[in-house]
Write a protein that binds this DNA or RNA. Structure first.
Length: 630
DNA sequence: TCACGAGTTA
């Protein structure tokens, strides 16, 4: 028994396997049990080394009296450097939900004159980071310097991390500049924290200057661009990474780049990453986050069937998986299936969260199921305990106002317990456009001008409403107001990605575009197609043309050059017969383009998927998945 | 004791 205890005391040797544990090794789980045991050992003349020193520190780390008692006991009975024994509870406290107890223990250590080692410092710094306690962090940094640990690279990185976590990027930079050695972690730390603070330019220049980059450096840079809404730049950095070919993307990289693909609609890159993940065995290992990212990418690139395939193949799912798929189906106008999935997940015992409910509410909204949606909104709080947030109210406003209940929608906005934002009022404005209610639109725009004065979209919707009603003086008035405020209409564009070699890649069109290599061919084909459309009874719908033109012909000319029309014609020219055409738009699709897409899908026997600002339209056989309700 | 840096849904 003595010998086996002796070996378990030594910190170098591994703990004995549980089966070899002596059956009557004294254990204790609090200081008073320890004291009883201590007394018992003294009385029965047994050695105090029967007590496990690490158990002593872990049980006695939370109060000053037990600390002092344990410290005395350890000093007299054990030869180990005490600090090593105290580091262990210090580490677990700094990892715990209340890291401040690590700081309390640290001050007891200091008062007991125990000299911290590098481990002590790093654990305390970790607690400071978690608590964003800059004051204590600075004290520990000073101590690190005083104790001569400056050249410990790992510890210096931990100090840098502490400054960054406490929001003191100035100190982080200062430390970075005077560090005698830096490694790739040092660079990554400063770079990611600059990026997190929104200083993408500094982060990028640091990234460009790095003497060496790890897979984390690349992932962090890509992630920063995705996070700040520049997925195209994120994809550029990823392309650089592939060109260099030094470092292979890992699972985290793939997840990040997939979200860039989702945001920018880069289906080709997304598909390639899917194949890559398969080859690398990422999917076999059942990485749920990666599969979730794949579902999201396919959904947002207009391939809901492919998304469903990934979803079905998954052995393990999380609430994120379900929410992504439900929201994706809703976005694609497949509301019934979204609702079925919701029942499925609750049947399986998954607890839906706020995001799940948003997806379901979207589904109701797209299906125009007013009463069901209302009931669901109520049950969300009552049966599932999920508190409605502003996005949920936004969905309800959408549901009500698109169903024509504009007054109820406005009432909801006034009664909601959260201060309504521009999105909520903008949603009501959208409903006003559908139901041609200029009066309420004016009220909504009144609020919007205060909440989000530089957003051109709202003015455009209002002037659409006036234009549809032929109120050209009011249209002009809105345009003057925009000019006066310096608001400019966002130019519309549509993009289409073509697979493969020459002519492959993303092609972007703006309205009236004549810069494309094949512009002449595009316009000629479009003219022919137009003839056929007219034969089938198509008449241009100029109600949404904003310009006050005397001649109807002029309006029609403007309409025919809308970017999505050019993109779809180019798609017809550049993809094999029968292939699906996928288009992305930065604005809402207009009525006339919606009609044209339906007809083209029928004439050319093609599936056309258009992603606009809010949702997807899938045109097939002359119909749209939105049921003309959008 | 074995420390610091990247990733999914609205």
């Amino acid at each position: 028994m003595q010998t086996s205890l002796g070996s378990s005391q030594s910190p170098q040797s591994p703990p004995p396997p549980p089966t070899k544990k002596p059956p009557n090794l004294p254990t204790f789980s609090n200081p008073s049990q320890l004291k009883q045991l201590h007394a018992h050992l003294l009385r029965s003349n047994q050695p105090l080394t029967l007590l496990s020193p690490s158990q002593i520190t872990s049980v006695c780390s939370s109060s000053s009296s037990s600390f002092n008692y344990a410290n005395l006991l350890l000093t007299h009975s054990f030869k180990n450097p005490l600090i090593v024994l105290w580091n262990s509870p210090l580490k677990s406290l700094s990892d715990s939900p209340s890291p401040s107890s690590a700081l309390s223990l640290f001050s007891l250590l200091r008062r007991a004159d125990l000299l911290p080692d590098t481990f002590t410092c790093s654990f305390v710094l970790k607690a400071c980071s978690a608590l964003t306690d800059l004051i204590t962090g600075k004290t520990v940094h000073a101590l690190v310097e005083k104790l001569g640990f400056r050249s410990d690279l790992f510890l210096s990185n931990t100090v840098l991390h502490m400054y960054a976590s406490c929001g003191s990027l100035g100190n982080a930079r200062l430390l970075f500049d005077k560090m005698p050695n830096r490694d790739v972690v040092t660079w990554n730390l400063l770079m990611t924290n600059l990026a997190k603070a929104g200083d993408l330019a500094s982060a990028r220049s640091l990234f460009d200057d790095m003497p060496e980059r790890s897979v984390r450096s690349w992932t962090a840079m890509i992630s920063a661009y995705v996070h700040f809404g520049d997925p195209d730049e994120a994809l550029c950095v990823f392309a650089m990474m592939e060109d260099e070919g030094v470092i292979a993307p890992n699972e985290a990289t793939v997840v990040t780049v997939l979200s860039a693909c989702a945001d920018s609609g880069a289906l080709c890159v997304g598909k390639r990453l899917h194949a890559y993940s398969d080859r690398k065995g990422f999917l076999r290992r059942g990485n749920v986050r990666l599969q979730n990212a794949l579902i999201d990418m396919y959904v947002k690139c207009g391939c809901v069937d492919e998304a469903r395939r990934v979803f079905t193949s998954m052995g393990e799912r999380t609430v994120v998986t379900w929410s992504t798929m439900i929201g994706g189906l809703a976005m694609h106008g497949q509301g019934e299936e979204a609702l079925e999935l919701f029942s499925g997940m609750t049947r399986l015992g998954f607890q839906p969260n706020g995001v799940t409910f948003l997806g379901v509410l979207h589904a109701y909204s797209h299906m125009g199921l007013l009463d069901e949606g209302r009931r669901f909104f109520k049950s969300m709080g009552e049966d599932h305990g999920v508190v409605a947030e502003i996005e949920h109210y936004g969905c309800m406003v959408d549901l009500l106002s698109r169903a024509g209940r504009l007054h109820e929608a406005r009432e909801l906005i006034e009664q909601m317990p959260i201060e309504p934002n521009s999105v909520v009022w903008g949603t009501l404005l959208g409903g006003c456009r559908v139901h041609k209610n200029a009066e309420m639109a004016e009220e909504a725009i009144g609020r919007l001008v205060e909440l989000d004065p530089m957003n051109d979209g709202y003015y455009v919707v209002l002037s659409n409403i006036y234009a549809e009603a032929g109120r050209w003086a009011d249209v002009a008035h809105v345009r003057r107001a925009m000019r006066a405020r310096g608001v400019r209409k966002t130019p519309g564009w549509s993009s289409i990605e073509i697979d493969g070699g020459s002519g492959g890649g993303v092609h972007v069109f703006v309205a009236g575009d004549s810069t494309h290599d094949r512009a002449k061919e595009i316009y000629e084909t479009w003219d022919e197609l137009l003839g056929e459309l007219r034969q089938r009874g198509y008449v241009a719908d100029t109600r949404e043309v904003l310009l006050d033109m005397e001649v109807e012909e002029e309006k029609v000319k403007v309409l025919y050059k809308h970017s999505e029309k050019l993109a779809v014609v180019f798609g017809l020219l550049s993809t094999p017969k029968g292939a699906t055409i996928r288009i992305m738009k930065n604005l809402r699709v207009c009525n006339d383009c919606h009609n044209v897409m339906k007809l083209i899908s029928k004439i050319e026997n093609r599936k056309i998927v258009v992603r606009d600002r809010n949702r997807f339209h899938c045109f097939e056989g002359g119909l749209c998945s939105c049921g003309d309700y959008w």
